[in-house]
Design a protein around this nucleic acid. Structure first.
Lengths: 150, 150
DNA sequence: TATTGTTATACTCTATAACTATA
DNA sequence: TATAGTTATAGAGTATAACAATA
C-alpha cells in the first residue's frame, strides 16, 4: 500500500501515454486532431482571436490562419470582425461546427467506452470512482482561456 | 449513486479523450508520435518484420520504410536480415533506442505527474486505485503482437 | 504467382519569413 | 513602431502506385 506518489504518477503517465496512442490510432480522419482541438476550445471559450487561438493550440499564427480557412470552407467555424479593433479576426464556432464536435466526441467516447465495456466489473468500478479525479486532471491540463490577453 | 454503466463509459470516454489532447499538445517534438509508438512496440515485442510493424502501427508499408530509415539514421533502430527468408527485414531497437525511449517516457510521465501533483490527496488515491484498470484498458486497445502472422 | 520491401510521386499539416493593414 | 493577420515557401509525415528481389 505504500506506493509512492511518484510511482503512481510515473505509472499514470506511461499508461495514459499508451491510451493516447490507442485513441489516435483509431481516430476518424475527417479533420486533423488540432482542428478538432481548436473547435473544442472554441466550444469552451466562445469566439477567440486568431492569435489567441494559435497560442492556446500551440501552433504558429500562420498555421492557424490556414487551419481556420479550412474549417471555414467546411462551414464549421466563421470569421467575424472585432468592432473595437479592425485588425482583429474573431473565430467562432458555427451551429454545424457544434454539431460536428458533438458527433466526433460521441464517436471517440464510444470507442473508448467499447474498451471499458470489456473490463471486469471491478475495474469499471475503479474507473468510475476515479472519474472525478480524471476530470480534474483534464481541467488542469486544459485550463479555460483567460481574458487577460485583451 | 445509481449512475448507469453507460453514463460512466460515456463520461470516461470524453474525459480520456480530453486528456489525450492535453498529452499530445505538450509532447516533445524530437520524433513523431508514430516513431515513438513504433519504438515502444519494438521494446515490448522484440525485433519485428517491417510489414508487421506497419500493420501494428496502422500505417502503410512504404511509410514504415521511411520511418525506419529515419530512426536508423538516428541510430535508434537497426535493420537485420532474416536468415530464414531473405526478402524479410527485421527491425530491432538499438541500445540507444532503448535509452531514448526510457528518457522520452520519463519526460511524458513527468509532465502528467506535474498535473497529478496538483490534485488533492483524495483524487490521487482514486487514480492510484484505478491504475490497474487503466493499464488493462490500455492493453485492450494495444494488444501484444501475435505470432500467427508468420 | 504471391510476398517483402523500396522508390517515385503527391497531399496534408506545420513552420519561418516577408508582407499588408491597422493601431 | 508595434500588432493582427495573410501569403509564400519549405520540411516532415503519410498515402498510393509502380518496381525489384525472393519465395
Amino acid at each position: 500500500m505504500a506506493q509512492s506518489a511518484v510511482d503512481v504518477q510515473r505509472a499514470l503517465g506511461e499508461t495514459l501515454y499508451g491510451l493516447v496512442v490507442v485513441a489516435i490510432r483509431g481516430r476518424s480522419r475527417d479533420i486533423s486532431l488540432t482542428s478538432a482541438s481548436t473547435m473544442s476550445t472554441l466550444s469552451r471559450t466562445g469566439p477567440l482571436r486568431l492569435t489567441d487561438l494559435a497560442a492556446v493550440e500551440g501552433i504558429a499564427q500562420p498555421s492557424m490562419t490556414s487551419l481556420v480557412t479550412g474549417l471555414e470552407r467546411a462551414g464549421l467555424v466563421e470569421r467575424r470582425p472585432d468592432p473595437a479593433d479592425r485588425r482583429v479576426v474573431l473565430v467562432a464556432l458555427t451551429d454545424a461546427g457544434r454539431e460536428h464536435l458533438r458527433t466526433r466526441r460521441q464517436h471517440g467516447a464510444e470507442r473508448l467506452a467499447a474498451l471499458v465495456d470489456q473490463l471486469s466489473e471491478e475495474d469499471r468500478a475503479a474507473l468510475a470512482a476515479a472519474l472525478p479525479a480524471l476530470h480534474r486532471l483534464h481541467e488542469l491540463g486544459n485550463p479555460p482561456t483567460r481574458e487577460e490577453t485583451a
